[in-house]
Amino acid sequence: MNIDKVMSIDAAMAHVTPGARVMMGEFVGAGEPAKCIEWLLAHRIDRLTLIANTSGLRGDFLMGKLFAAGLIEEYIGTHGATSNEASDAYLSGKLKVRQFFPMGTWAEKVRAGGHGLGGALVPVGVGILDQEGLFPDLEEPKRTIEIRGKTYLVEEALTADVSIIRGYRADPLGNVEFRYMATQNQKDLAMAGKFTIAEVNEIVPVGAIPPERVGCPGPFVNAVVQGYSLADQHTLYRDHWIKLGRLPKLPEGETP
């Protein structure tokens, strides 16, 4: 039987249950799996632990809406206020954040989780992030280790029940191609999830993606789902950029 990982969003997202630990590809709103986020909002899957680089883009946009809807219990990432929704949830005590990580540290924790390592040794933040009392919700103080006279923080690997990434094209084998700055660490996130869903702009036949353009090999992916087409995704982002004043409005009658 041929391998075919293409499935409906309903079938793929059934793996996300209340209380699950979910990783999501994104960078301040860019490269987010829009359709899967809409599914979570529609089905109100709650008590989630969200592992994501930032807390989304402000102004009622994609991942940020998960915080406003109260679906996220805990956030593990680098920044609690790239979206106003996450910021509000955090400051009002509805969102738990035990600590913030420097972005490179967070990315290495995910990579370690995906690559079968126990963690990463990181020099960034030594003497700052390990100061007593800085993060009172930590279960134990941050550990340090000395190697050849230099001190590193011991940062444990991160893994997830489900990883949801967003690519450009994918084939039924699960091979995913990325575009530009949406490449991010989507591949590492895919490797760190027990069940990984790739939402893509376009599903193409096996062989359509040149092997050297495969950014995330099929064996790291369990489900391929159809997201917004690239044209519709451009419209979604252009509309939001216009709303935020980051792009000029178009003349009457023209659509982005």
């Binding site: 807390s55 680098t78 609690g80 206020a81 910021s87 420097p102 972005m103 490179g104 800085l134």
Partner: peptide
Amino acid sequence: WWPGIGGAMD
């Protein structure tokens, strides 16, 4: 502590 670190510390 608010808002967060991002890439500044790196």
